[in-house]
Simulated assay, not measured.
Amino acid sequence: MTDKNREEDAIRGVAERLKIAFSATHSAGEVETVVAKAHAAFSERPVREFIPVLVERRARSMLNKPSA
């Protein structure tokens, strides 16, 4: 498995965990959108090892913010 595939699998896992954690307040589509935005924020980072952890933290933060 390549590093890119491993990262993609990890990001899918992040999305699944967050869909469950935020199912009462956010739709699955909203969670996927937030995870994609969080992941895109790290697209230019050369070191990829911790990207899934950083994406999950950023996405959780975004999902916990009250809607405007």
Rank of each mutant, 00 (worst) to 15 (best):
I20L: 12
P66N: 11
R57K: 15
A15H: 01
V47K: 02
V47Q: 04
E32Y: 09
A41V: 03
F42W: 11
K4T: 00
A10I: 01
A21R: 03
A40C: 07
T25S: 15
A21E: 00
N5K: 04
N64K: 09
A28D: 12
I51C: 02
D3F: 01
R58D: 14
E56K: 04
E56F: 05
F50M: 00
I20Q: 11
S67D: 14
K4N: 04
E32F: 08
A10M: 03
R6A: 04
P66T: 10
S43P: 13
E7N: 09
K19N: 05
A21L: 06
A59K: 12
R6W: 02
S23H: 15
F42M: 08
E16K: 06
N5I: 00
A36S: 11
F42Y: 14
R48K: 05
A40H: 14
E8T: 04
S23K: 15
N5Q: 14
S27K: 15
G29M: 13
V47C: 05
V34F: 11
V14R: 00
A21D: 08
V34T: 10
E8L: 06
K65D: 13
E32I: 06
P66F: 09
I11Y: 05
D3N: 07
S67E: 14
R17N: 12
N64L: 08
R48E: 03
A36I: 04
V31M: 05
P46H: 06
T25V: 12
D3W: 02
E56T: 05
K19C: 04
R57Q: 13
E8R: 09
V35I: 10
F22C: 08
A10W: 01
D9E: 08
E49Q: 00
S43N: 14
A41Q: 11
R45H: 10
V14Q: 00
P66H: 10
S43M: 04
K4M: 06
E44I: 09
R60N: 10
V55S: 00
P52I: 02
A68D: 15
A36K: 14
A40Q: 13
V35F: 13
V35H: 07
L18D: 03
A40W: 09
T33R: 13
A59P: 06
A41Y: 11
V53F: 02
E49G: 00
N5E: 03
S67G: 13
V53T: 06
S67M: 13
L18A: 00
S43H: 15
V31Q: 09
V14K: 03
G29L: 12
S67V: 14
I20W: 12
R45T: 03
K19L: 05
E44K: 15
M1Q: 11
L63N: 10
P46M: 07
F42V: 10
R6L: 01
L18P: 02
T2W: 02
V31T: 12
F22L: 08
T25G: 14
H26L: 04
A21G: 06
E8V: 01
P66M: 09
P66C: 07
A38P: 01
K4W: 02
T25N: 14
R12P: 14
A36E: 09
A24C: 12
K4Y: 02
E7S: 03
E30Y: 14
P52T: 03
E32A: 08
K37P: 07
P52M: 00
E49D: 06
